[in-house]
């Protein structure tokens, strides 16, 4: 593998994704979970940019990346609304307490 800006960025994408998923699995605070999701999304945005840069379709990938940022911000906002509402209704941000639905 040639060491180039793209490969370094690719490693960042992998590292961030792994870290993000690990964080999703071990974090208990709901708001922090949302942050972990944001980390993965950022990795995806970087990945799209790399893909476009890699084969000269930068315009396309820029458009796509911007859309992703906007859409996932909306998702994060809705998720935060959920977290706030859950905190209001149940008095906790602990994801472990959200386990009434099972079986």
């Amino acid at each position: 593998m040639i060491i180039s800006p793209l490969t370094i960025s690719l490693l960042v994408v992998c590292g961030l994704t792994g870290l993000g998923f690990y964080g999703l699995l071990v974090t208990r605070n709901m708001i922090k979970l949302i942050m972990m999701l944001q980390i993965i999304v950022k990795a995806a945005v970087l990945g799209i940019v790399i893909a476009g840069q890699g084969n000269g379709q930068l315009n396309l990938s820029q458009n796509v990346a911007i859309t992703i940022i906007v859409v996932d911000t909306i998702v994060a906002v809705v998720a935060l609304a959920f977290a706030i509402q859950i905190r209001r209704q149940m008095g906790t941000l602990d994801i472990r307490e959200l386990a009434s639905l099972r079986g």
Partner: peptide, 13 residues
């Protein structure tokens, strides 16, 4: 992202 010359994405990000 900016260094990868995707300027608009960098700004938005």
């Amino acid at each position: 992202i900016y260094m990868l010359s995707a300027n608009q994405v960098a700004v938005i990000e």
